[in-house]
Amino acid sequence: MDVLYFAWVRERIGLPREKVETSAATVGDLVAELRAREARYDAAFSDLTALRVAVDQELSDFDAPLSGAREVAFFPPMTGG
């Protein structure tokens, strides 16, 4: 699936998007897999209360299932307007 990062999450991880091969059942499982990869991922995901997630471009939750999802995005709380 495509995993996208925005704002300081993108800066901390060092890339805007990547393809991830995963069998993670939920968003939380995917986060655990990413954190286990490298320190920069671990740092970016260290406080989930500071993060929001969208699954297939819809705001979602960290316990949401990932079955069939094509695109998951992680970002800080939005600051539009």
């Binding site: 925005f6 995005a73 970002f75 709380p77 939005m78 600051t79 539009g80």
Partner: peptide, 22 residues
């Protein structure tokens, strides 16, 4: 649209920059 549209603002000054917090 302030809190539910996916925009993020970064303020850039001459010697500092930072993301605007919600």
């Amino acid at each position: 649209l302030k809190s539910r549209a996916p925009f993020w603002k970064k303020e850039v000054a001459a010697d500092a920059e930072g993301w605007v917090a919600a």
